[in-house]
Each structure stands twice: as C-alpha cells, then as structure tokens.
C-alpha cells in the first residue's frame, strides 16, 4: 500500500507541475510535449486504480493520436517553433481568479464530502475489474451508447473534413 502511495505522490506532483507549465509556457511545442507528460501520468494513475485497459487506450489514443494531431496543428498554423511572447491574452488575472475560485469550491466540497467516504475513505482494490468485465458492459447494457459513439465519431470525421477542406 505504501508503494502505491509513493507512486501516486510522484505521479500527482509530476502531473500538476507539468500542467502548470503547460498553461504558462511560452513555447507551443513544449506545451505539446508537456501535455504528453500529463496524459502519460494519467495513464499511470489509471494503472494504480487497476484500470489497465483504459490506461492502454489512454496511451494509444491520447498520446498516440491526440497529441500528434495537436502538434500537426501547431505546424500547420505555422506557430513559431521556439519562444513566443504573444501566447496569453490580457485577461490572465481574471482567468487566475476564476480558476482559483473553482479550485477552492470544488476542493473544499470534495475534501469535506469524501474524506471519510465508505468509512475509512480508502479505495479497496479487492474486486479488481478486468478488461473482460469492461467489454461485457460495453457490448451488453451500454451497447446503444457505444453505437452512438461510433456515429458521433463518423459525424466528427465528416464535419472536420467539411470544415477544413479548401473550396
């Protein structure tokens, strides 16, 4: 248990620091790489919670596809590779206040509400959920949402082509 606690600490610290850098860095390409770090950290968190299938999907889809799309986008929009001072707008203080306010509200509520959740407030991984159970759920009771998700992907595909095509 203590090893998991240490792993969580390291992952959480890495993710928070990387995401803080991500929203403040002056270099778009660095931001993309930092996003990969945060997403990889999330995959590690999933492994800690015994959700290895989602962790694998996270790495495949997010780091493999989403980050690559974003980096391609960076290239296609000819952002300056390197330092760029002009990445933030003039409402940084407003944004910081709103974000801190949200963090305060949600953090307090979560702390008070879930500190003692289920008695000791701990996650017990006794009934570990295998990938087989996930698939039973997806192709069973959640079949219709699954089909709807496929339609959504198709719609997004067509929509993206329609929006970005030159004509």
């Amino acid at each position: 248990m203590i090893a998991q606690q240490i792993a969580f600490g390291i992952l959480a610290a890495t993710m928070v620091l990387a995401s803080l850098r991500l929203v403040t860095t002056k270099n778009v390409v660095h931001a993309g790489l930092l996003l990969a770090v945060v997403l990889g950290g999330a995959a590690g968190i999933f492994v800690l919670l015994a959700a290895e299938y989602v962790a694998v999907v996270q790495i495949l889809v997010y780091i493999g596809a989403v980050v690559v799309i974003l980096l391609f986008g960076t290239m296609l929009t000819r952002a300056r590779i390197g330092e760029d001072t002009d990445l933030d707008n003039d409402q940084r203080w407003l944004a910081a206040i709103v974000a801190l306010f949200m963090l305060g509200v949600t953090g307090t509520v979560l702390w008070q509400g879930f500190r003692h959740a289920g008695g000791d407030g701990k996650v017990h991984l006794n009934g570990v959920q295998r990938a087989a159970q996930v698939s039973d759920l997806i192709f069973g009771p959640y079949g219709i949402p699954f089909e709807v998700a496929s339609v959504l992907l198709l719609a997004a595909l067509v929509g993206a082509v329609a929006i970005a095509r030159r004509d």
Partner: peptide, 20 residues
Amino acid sequence: VQQYAAALFGAAALFGLALV
C-alpha cells in the same frame, strides 16, 4: 468567447457554492 467562458465558469462555481 474567452470572456464569456470566464463568466460561465465563474458562475458555475458560484452556483456550486450556493448549492453547498
């Protein structure tokens, strides 16, 4: 849009607070 978004998030947090 981002100023609208700021209002949106701020209001959401405020309503959350009111709910609590």
